[in-house]
Design a protein around this nucleic acid. Structure first.
Lengths: 198, 198
DNA sequence: AGTGGATGGTACCGATCGGTTCGATCAGCG
DNA sequence: CGCTGATCGAACCGATCGGTACCATCCACT
Protein backbone atom coordinates (compact mmCIF):
# COMPACT_ATOMS: atom_id res chain seq x y z
CA UNK A 1 0.00 0.00 0.00
CA UNK A 2 1.95 2.98 -1.22
CA UNK A 3 -0.56 5.41 0.22
CA UNK A 4 -1.22 5.55 3.97
CA UNK A 5 -4.73 5.40 5.33
CA UNK A 6 -6.93 8.45 5.17
CA UNK A 7 -5.08 10.37 2.50
CA UNK A 8 -5.00 10.43 -1.25
CA UNK A 9 -1.60 11.66 -2.35
CA UNK A 10 1.31 10.53 -0.21
CA UNK A 11 2.54 13.53 1.79
CA UNK A 12 5.74 11.80 2.88
CA UNK A 13 6.77 11.39 -0.73
CA UNK A 14 6.12 15.05 -1.40
CA UNK A 15 8.11 16.05 1.63
CA UNK A 16 11.07 13.94 0.61
CA UNK A 17 10.94 15.36 -2.91
CA UNK A 18 10.99 18.89 -1.53
CA UNK A 19 14.00 18.13 0.65
CA UNK A 20 15.86 16.52 -2.22
CA UNK A 21 15.19 19.39 -4.59
CA UNK A 22 15.95 22.12 -2.06
CA UNK A 23 19.25 20.61 -0.92
CA UNK A 24 21.48 21.55 -3.87
CA UNK A 25 19.92 24.99 -4.22
CA UNK A 26 20.42 25.93 -0.56
CA UNK A 27 23.92 24.47 -0.64
CA UNK A 28 25.02 26.40 -3.70
CA UNK A 29 23.53 29.78 -2.86
CA UNK A 30 23.51 29.68 0.91
CA UNK A 31 20.67 29.23 3.37
CA UNK A 32 19.75 32.91 3.28
CA UNK A 33 20.70 33.37 -0.35
CA UNK A 34 17.48 32.00 -1.82
CA UNK A 35 14.03 33.14 -0.81
CA UNK A 36 10.91 31.10 -0.33
CA UNK A 37 9.40 32.36 -3.57
CA UNK A 38 12.27 31.19 -5.75
CA UNK A 39 12.55 28.04 -3.70
CA UNK A 40 8.95 27.10 -4.43
CA UNK A 41 9.35 27.97 -8.10
CA UNK A 42 12.38 25.73 -8.55
CA UNK A 43 10.79 22.97 -6.53
CA UNK A 44 7.57 23.07 -8.52
CA UNK A 45 5.70 23.31 -5.25
CA UNK A 46 3.21 25.83 -4.01
CA UNK A 47 3.95 28.03 -1.04
CA UNK A 48 1.16 26.48 0.98
CA UNK A 49 2.47 22.97 0.52
CA UNK A 50 5.93 23.96 1.70
CA UNK A 51 4.63 25.63 4.83
CA UNK A 52 2.26 22.79 5.63
CA UNK A 53 5.13 20.31 5.56
CA UNK A 54 7.82 22.32 7.32
CA UNK A 55 5.98 25.05 9.18
CA UNK A 56 8.64 27.61 8.47
CA UNK A 57 11.65 28.14 6.25
CA UNK A 58 13.85 27.23 9.19
CA UNK A 59 12.07 23.90 9.40
CA UNK A 60 12.92 23.18 5.80
CA UNK A 61 16.51 24.22 6.40
CA UNK A 62 16.80 21.87 9.35
CA UNK A 63 15.30 18.99 7.38
CA UNK A 64 17.69 19.65 4.50
CA UNK A 65 20.72 19.81 6.77
CA UNK A 66 19.71 16.68 8.63
CA UNK A 67 19.20 14.77 5.39
CA UNK A 68 22.55 15.94 4.08
CA UNK A 69 24.32 14.98 7.28
CA UNK A 70 22.81 11.51 7.10
CA UNK A 71 23.80 11.16 3.47
CA UNK A 72 27.40 12.24 4.08
CA UNK A 73 27.69 9.91 7.00
CA UNK A 74 26.37 6.94 5.04
CA UNK A 75 28.77 7.79 2.21
CA UNK A 76 31.78 7.95 4.50
CA UNK A 77 30.84 4.79 6.35
CA UNK A 78 30.48 2.95 3.06
CA UNK A 79 33.90 4.15 1.89
CA UNK A 80 35.47 2.96 5.13
CA UNK A 81 33.90 -0.48 5.09
CA UNK A 82 34.81 -0.90 1.43
CA UNK A 83 38.46 -0.25 2.28
CA UNK A 84 38.91 -3.51 4.17
CA UNK A 85 40.11 -4.20 7.68
CA UNK A 86 43.38 -2.24 7.77
CA UNK A 87 42.87 1.02 9.71
CA UNK A 88 45.41 2.82 7.53
CA UNK A 89 43.53 1.78 4.41
CA UNK A 90 40.29 2.92 6.00
CA UNK A 91 41.76 6.31 6.83
CA UNK A 92 43.17 6.67 3.32
CA UNK A 93 39.73 5.82 1.95
CA UNK A 94 38.20 8.70 3.92
CA UNK A 95 40.50 11.24 2.30
CA UNK A 96 40.16 9.66 -1.13
CA UNK A 97 36.42 10.08 -0.80
CA UNK A 98 36.97 13.69 0.23
CA UNK A 99 39.16 14.18 -2.84
CA UNK A 100 36.35 13.00 -5.09
CA UNK A 101 34.03 15.42 -3.40
CA UNK A 102 36.44 18.34 -3.80
CA UNK A 103 36.65 17.73 -7.53
CA UNK A 104 32.91 17.91 -8.05
CA UNK A 105 32.01 21.17 -9.80
CA UNK A 106 29.26 21.80 -7.27
CA UNK A 107 31.66 21.61 -4.33
CA UNK A 108 31.29 24.67 -2.11
CA UNK A 109 32.76 23.56 1.19
CA UNK A 110 31.27 21.72 4.14
CA UNK A 111 27.55 22.42 4.20
CA UNK A 112 27.49 22.09 7.99
CA UNK A 113 30.27 24.61 8.51
CA UNK A 114 28.66 26.99 6.03
CA UNK A 115 25.30 26.65 7.74
CA UNK A 116 26.74 27.28 11.18
CA UNK A 117 28.55 30.35 9.86
CA UNK A 118 25.23 31.85 8.84
CA UNK A 119 22.83 30.66 11.55
CA UNK A 120 24.86 30.53 14.73
CA UNK A 121 21.59 30.09 16.56
CA UNK A 122 19.41 27.37 17.90
CA UNK A 123 18.65 24.11 16.13
CA UNK A 124 21.04 24.45 13.23
CA UNK A 125 23.99 24.39 15.59
CA UNK A 126 22.66 21.21 17.15
CA UNK A 127 22.58 19.51 13.76
CA UNK A 128 26.07 20.66 12.81
CA UNK A 129 27.47 19.66 16.20
CA UNK A 130 25.99 16.17 15.87
CA UNK A 131 27.40 15.98 12.37
CA UNK A 132 30.91 16.62 13.66
CA UNK A 133 30.35 14.20 16.52
CA UNK A 134 29.49 11.42 14.11
CA UNK A 135 32.55 12.26 12.06
CA UNK A 136 34.62 12.11 15.23
CA UNK A 137 33.22 8.71 16.11
CA UNK A 138 34.20 7.37 12.71
CA UNK A 139 37.76 8.67 12.95
CA UNK A 140 38.22 7.71 16.59
CA UNK A 141 37.13 4.20 15.70
CA UNK A 142 39.85 4.00 13.07
CA UNK A 143 42.33 5.35 15.60
CA UNK A 144 41.28 2.76 18.16
CA UNK A 145 41.56 -0.12 15.71
CA UNK A 146 45.04 1.15 14.82
CA UNK A 147 46.05 0.80 18.45
CA UNK A 148 46.46 4.48 19.21
CA UNK A 149 47.23 5.26 22.83
CA UNK A 150 44.55 7.99 22.93
CA UNK A 151 42.04 7.24 20.17
CA UNK A 152 39.87 10.19 21.13
CA UNK A 153 42.68 12.70 20.81
CA UNK A 154 43.92 11.21 17.55
CA UNK A 155 40.38 11.18 16.27
CA UNK A 156 40.07 14.88 16.97
CA UNK A 157 43.36 15.56 15.20
CA UNK A 158 42.15 13.60 12.20
CA UNK A 159 38.87 15.50 12.29
CA UNK A 160 40.84 18.74 12.13
CA UNK A 161 42.59 17.47 9.03
CA UNK A 162 39.27 16.53 7.44
CA UNK A 163 37.64 19.88 8.09
CA UNK A 164 40.82 21.83 7.43
CA UNK A 165 41.33 20.10 4.10
CA UNK A 166 37.76 20.98 3.18
CA UNK A 167 38.33 24.63 4.03
CA UNK A 168 41.57 24.77 2.06
CA UNK A 169 39.99 23.01 -0.90
CA UNK A 170 37.14 25.51 -0.82
CA UNK A 171 39.39 28.54 -0.94
CA UNK A 172 42.32 27.31 -3.00
CA UNK A 173 40.54 25.43 -5.72
CA UNK A 174 40.44 21.69 -6.20
CA UNK A 175 43.38 21.62 -8.61
CA UNK A 176 46.09 21.34 -6.00
CA UNK A 177 46.22 17.90 -4.38
CA UNK A 178 44.66 19.02 -1.14
CA UNK A 179 43.06 15.69 -0.35
CA UNK A 180 46.27 13.80 -1.10
CA UNK A 181 48.32 16.05 1.18
CA UNK A 182 45.74 15.71 3.92
CA UNK A 183 45.76 11.94 3.51
CA UNK A 184 49.53 11.78 3.88
CA UNK A 185 49.41 13.95 6.97
CA UNK A 186 46.67 11.77 8.45
CA UNK A 187 48.58 8.57 7.74
CA UNK A 188 51.69 10.08 9.29
CA UNK A 189 49.78 10.96 12.45
CA UNK A 190 48.21 7.51 12.56
CA UNK A 191 51.58 5.79 12.15
CA UNK A 192 53.19 7.98 14.81
CA UNK A 193 50.39 7.31 17.29
CA UNK A 194 50.33 3.58 16.67
CA UNK A 195 54.02 3.36 17.39
CA UNK A 196 54.85 3.37 21.15
CA UNK A 197 56.47 6.69 22.14
CA UNK A 198 60.23 7.03 22.59
CA UNK B 1 49.11 68.64 10.81
CA UNK B 2 46.51 66.09 11.88
CA UNK B 3 43.96 67.43 9.42
CA UNK B 4 44.59 67.24 5.67
CA UNK B 5 44.25 70.30 3.49
CA UNK B 6 40.84 71.50 2.46
CA UNK B 7 38.77 69.68 5.07
CA UNK B 8 37.72 70.36 8.61
CA UNK B 9 37.09 67.07 10.39
CA UNK B 10 39.42 64.26 9.42
CA UNK B 11 37.45 61.79 7.27
CA UNK B 12 40.11 59.12 7.48
CA UNK B 13 39.76 59.03 11.24
CA UNK B 14 36.01 58.69 10.95
CA UNK B 15 36.37 55.91 8.43
CA UNK B 16 38.78 54.00 10.66
CA UNK B 17 36.46 54.42 13.64
CA UNK B 18 33.55 53.03 11.62
CA UNK B 19 35.58 50.01 10.57
CA UNK B 20 36.75 49.37 14.12
CA UNK B 21 33.25 49.61 15.56
CA UNK B 22 31.60 47.55 12.83
CA UNK B 23 34.11 44.70 12.99
CA UNK B 24 32.97 42.96 16.20
CA UNK B 25 29.30 43.43 15.36
CA UNK B 26 29.56 41.92 11.89
CA UNK B 27 31.74 39.13 13.24
CA UNK B 28 29.36 38.17 16.01
CA UNK B 29 26.09 38.33 14.11
CA UNK B 30 27.24 37.59 10.58
CA UNK B 31 27.64 39.86 7.57
CA UNK B 32 23.96 39.61 6.65
CA UNK B 33 22.76 39.35 10.23
CA UNK B 34 22.85 43.06 10.99
CA UNK B 35 21.25 45.72 8.84
CA UNK B 36 22.52 49.13 7.94
CA UNK B 37 20.09 50.83 10.30
CA UNK B 38 21.25 48.97 13.39
CA UNK B 39 24.82 49.23 12.20
CA UNK B 40 24.62 53.02 12.10
CA UNK B 41 22.88 53.15 15.46
CA UNK B 42 25.57 51.09 17.18
CA UNK B 43 28.31 53.00 15.43
CA UNK B 44 26.90 56.39 16.37
CA UNK B 45 27.14 57.36 12.74
CA UNK B 46 24.56 58.67 10.36
CA UNK B 47 23.47 56.70 7.34
CA UNK B 48 24.77 59.32 4.96
CA UNK B 49 28.26 59.28 6.47
CA UNK B 50 28.49 55.54 6.15
CA UNK B 51 27.48 55.56 2.51
CA UNK B 52 29.78 58.49 1.68
CA UNK B 53 32.77 56.58 3.05
CA UNK B 54 32.05 53.10 1.74
CA UNK B 55 29.58 53.60 -1.09
CA UNK B 56 27.64 50.48 -0.21
CA UNK B 57 27.27 47.99 2.58
CA UNK B 58 29.45 45.62 0.63
CA UNK B 59 32.18 48.23 0.62
CA UNK B 60 32.07 48.42 4.39
CA UNK B 61 32.13 44.63 4.61
CA UNK B 62 35.21 44.47 2.42
CA UNK B 63 36.96 47.13 4.44
CA UNK B 64 36.14 45.33 7.67
CA UNK B 65 37.36 41.98 6.36
CA UNK B 66 40.55 43.49 4.98
CA UNK B 67 41.28 45.21 8.28
CA UNK B 68 40.66 42.02 10.20
CA UNK B 69 42.87 40.00 7.89
CA UNK B 70 45.66 42.52 8.37
CA UNK B 71 45.23 42.46 12.12
CA UNK B 72 45.27 38.66 12.33
CA UNK B 73 48.33 38.50 10.16
CA UNK B 74 50.21 41.05 12.26
CA UNK B 75 49.22 39.15 15.40
CA UNK B 76 50.45 35.82 14.08
CA UNK B 77 53.67 37.28 12.73
CA UNK B 78 54.36 38.87 16.09
CA UNK B 79 53.75 35.58 17.89
CA UNK B 80 56.14 33.80 15.56
CA UNK B 81 58.96 36.33 15.88
CA UNK B 82 58.53 36.38 19.65
CA UNK B 83 59.05 32.62 19.74
CA UNK B 84 62.72 32.81 18.79
CA UNK B 85 64.64 31.15 15.98
CA UNK B 86 63.63 27.50 16.40
CA UNK B 87 61.03 26.58 13.76
CA UNK B 88 59.35 24.12 16.13
CA UNK B 89 58.99 26.84 18.74
CA UNK B 90 57.60 29.16 16.11
CA UNK B 91 55.03 26.58 15.04
CA UNK B 92 54.07 25.91 18.64
CA UNK B 93 53.63 29.65 19.14
CA UNK B 94 51.15 29.76 16.28
CA UNK B 95 48.89 27.20 17.90
CA UNK B 96 49.31 28.71 21.35
CA UNK B 97 48.11 31.99 19.90
CA UNK B 98 45.17 30.15 18.34
CA UNK B 99 44.38 28.61 21.72
CA UNK B 100 44.17 32.05 23.30
CA UNK B 101 41.81 33.11 20.54
CA UNK B 102 39.58 30.04 20.97
CA UNK B 103 39.16 30.80 24.66
CA UNK B 104 37.92 34.34 24.08
CA UNK B 105 34.18 34.54 24.79
CA UNK B 106 33.63 36.36 21.51
CA UNK B 107 35.22 33.58 19.47
CA UNK B 108 32.95 32.53 16.63
CA UNK B 109 35.25 30.83 14.18
CA UNK B 110 37.42 32.16 11.40
CA UNK B 111 35.88 35.38 10.13
CA UNK B 112 37.23 34.74 6.65
CA UNK B 113 35.71 31.28 6.41
CA UNK B 114 32.43 32.58 7.79
CA UNK B 115 32.39 35.45 5.32
CA UNK B 116 33.12 33.19 2.38
CA UNK B 117 30.35 30.85 3.47
CA UNK B 118 27.85 33.68 3.20
CA UNK B 119 29.11 35.74 0.23
CA UNK B 120 30.60 33.28 -2.20
CA UNK B 121 30.83 36.11 -4.71
CA UNK B 122 33.57 38.23 -6.12
CA UNK B 123 35.48 40.64 -3.89
CA UNK B 124 34.92 38.91 -0.59
CA UNK B 125 36.37 35.69 -1.95
CA UNK B 126 39.45 37.58 -3.12
CA UNK B 127 40.05 38.89 0.39
CA UNK B 128 39.58 35.50 2.03
CA UNK B 129 41.79 33.79 -0.55
CA UNK B 130 44.58 36.30 0.07
CA UNK B 131 44.12 35.78 3.79
CA UNK B 132 44.74 32.06 3.43
CA UNK B 133 47.65 32.72 1.10
CA UNK B 134 49.35 34.87 3.70
CA UNK B 135 48.74 32.20 6.30
CA UNK B 136 50.25 29.67 3.96
CA UNK B 137 53.33 31.84 3.44
CA UNK B 138 53.87 32.04 7.18
CA UNK B 139 53.59 28.29 7.68
CA UNK B 140 55.62 27.39 4.60
CA UNK B 141 58.38 29.67 5.87
CA UNK B 142 58.48 27.76 9.14
CA UNK B 143 58.54 24.50 7.19
CA UNK B 144 61.40 25.74 5.03
CA UNK B 145 63.45 26.87 8.02
CA UNK B 146 62.87 23.45 9.57
CA UNK B 147 64.47 21.86 6.52
CA UNK B 148 61.37 20.18 5.15
CA UNK B 149 61.83 18.46 1.83
CA UNK B 150 58.68 20.08 0.40
CA UNK B 151 57.98 23.23 2.43
CA UNK B 152 54.98 24.15 0.31
CA UNK B 153 53.25 20.83 0.87
CA UNK B 154 54.03 20.82 4.57
CA UNK B 155 52.83 24.41 4.79
CA UNK B 156 49.50 23.39 3.29
CA UNK B 157 49.20 20.50 5.71
CA UNK B 158 49.87 22.85 8.60
CA UNK B 159 47.33 25.29 7.19
CA UNK B 160 44.76 22.49 7.21
CA UNK B 161 45.50 21.93 10.88
CA UNK B 162 45.11 25.63 11.64
CA UNK B 163 41.78 25.98 9.87
CA UNK B 164 40.57 22.57 10.97
CA UNK B 165 41.36 23.32 14.59
CA UNK B 166 39.41 26.57 14.26
CA UNK B 167 36.41 24.72 12.85
CA UNK B 168 36.52 22.08 15.59
CA UNK B 169 36.93 24.72 18.29
CA UNK B 170 33.94 26.57 16.88
CA UNK B 171 31.65 23.57 16.99
CA UNK B 172 32.95 21.64 19.98
CA UNK B 173 33.48 24.46 22.42
CA UNK B 174 36.80 25.79 23.63
CA UNK B 175 36.88 23.61 26.74
CA UNK B 176 38.55 20.62 25.12
CA UNK B 177 42.21 21.25 24.37
CA UNK B 178 41.70 21.66 20.66
CA UNK B 179 44.63 24.00 20.15
CA UNK B 180 46.94 21.75 22.15
CA UNK B 181 45.99 18.69 20.14
CA UNK B 182 46.46 20.62 16.91
CA UNK B 183 49.86 21.84 18.09
CA UNK B 184 51.02 18.31 18.85
CA UNK B 185 49.85 17.12 15.47
CA UNK B 186 51.62 20.02 13.76
CA UNK B 187 54.85 19.37 15.63
CA UNK B 188 54.65 15.69 14.75
CA UNK B 189 54.26 16.53 11.06
CA UNK B 190 57.11 19.03 11.24
CA UNK B 191 59.41 16.51 12.93
CA UNK B 192 58.53 13.80 10.44
CA UNK B 193 59.16 16.08 7.46
CA UNK B 194 62.44 17.42 8.83
CA UNK B 195 63.75 13.91 9.22
CA UNK B 196 65.02 12.37 5.95
CA UNK B 197 62.63 9.65 4.73
CA UNK B 198 63.33 5.97 5.37
C1' DA C 1 32.51 86.59 12.12
C1' DG C 2 32.06 83.96 8.17
C1' DT C 3 32.68 80.14 4.99
C1' DG C 4 32.63 75.37 3.52
C1' DG C 5 33.13 70.59 4.04
C1' DA C 6 31.85 66.78 7.30
C1' DT C 7 28.32 65.07 9.99
C1' DG C 8 23.68 63.69 12.44
C1' DG C 9 18.92 62.85 12.11
C1' DT C 10 15.10 61.63 9.71
C1' DA C 11 11.91 60.77 6.37
C1' DC C 12 11.39 58.31 2.39
C1' DC C 13 11.89 55.01 -1.71
C1' DG C 14 11.26 50.53 -4.20
C1' DA C 15 12.22 45.87 -3.55
C1' DT C 16 12.14 41.78 -1.22
C1' DC C 17 11.61 39.08 2.68
C1' DG C 18 8.90 35.22 5.39
C1' DG C 19 4.36 33.97 6.16
C1' DT C 20 -1.00 33.75 5.61
C1' DT C 21 -5.26 33.17 3.22
C1' DC C 22 -8.59 31.81 -0.23
C1' DG C 23 -10.61 29.50 -4.00
C1' DA C 24 -9.90 26.25 -7.86
C1' DT C 25 -8.16 21.82 -9.08
C1' DC C 26 -7.01 17.15 -8.85
C1' DA C 27 -6.31 12.39 -7.18
C1' DG C 28 -7.90 8.54 -4.83
C1' DC C 29 -11.44 5.99 -1.89
C1' DG C 30 -16.20 4.81 -0.67
C1' DC D 1 -20.99 9.34 -8.36
C1' DG D 2 -19.72 12.12 -4.02
C1' DC D 3 -16.49 12.89 -0.43
C1' DT D 4 -11.97 14.02 1.52
C1' DG D 5 -7.73 15.83 1.56
C1' DA D 6 -3.46 17.24 -0.83
C1' DT D 7 -2.02 20.50 -3.97
C1' DC D 8 -1.62 24.74 -6.93
C1' DG D 9 -1.65 29.54 -8.06
C1' DA D 10 -1.98 33.98 -6.78
C1' DA D 11 -3.13 37.71 -4.08
C1' DC D 12 -1.97 39.76 0.02
C1' DC D 13 0.21 41.20 4.62
C1' DG D 14 3.50 43.62 7.67
C1' DA D 15 8.24 44.04 8.32
C1' DT D 16 12.65 44.89 6.91
C1' DC D 17 16.07 45.42 3.64
C1' DG D 18 19.77 48.56 1.17
C1' DG D 19 20.06 53.02 -0.53
C1' DT D 20 18.85 58.21 -1.37
C1' DA D 21 17.48 63.02 -0.36
C1' DC D 22 17.11 66.90 2.47
C1' DC D 23 18.22 69.93 6.10
C1' DA D 24 20.07 71.48 10.51
C1' DT D 25 24.26 71.33 12.84
C1' DC D 26 28.98 71.60 13.96
C1' DC D 27 33.80 72.22 13.54
C1' DA D 28 38.05 74.23 11.73
C1' DC D 29 40.44 77.39 9.16
C1' DT D 30 40.65 82.27 7.39
Amino acid sequence: MPVPKGSTIDPARTRAAIVDAATPLLYERGLDGVGVAELCARLGVSRETLYRHFGTKGGLVQAVLQARSDRVHRWMAAAVTAAGADPADQLAAVFDALGEWYREPTFRGCAMVNAAAQHHDDPVRAITARHLDRYLDLLSGIAARAGAADPGALGRQLLMLVEGATVVATHHGAAAGTAEQAREAALALLAAASRPPG
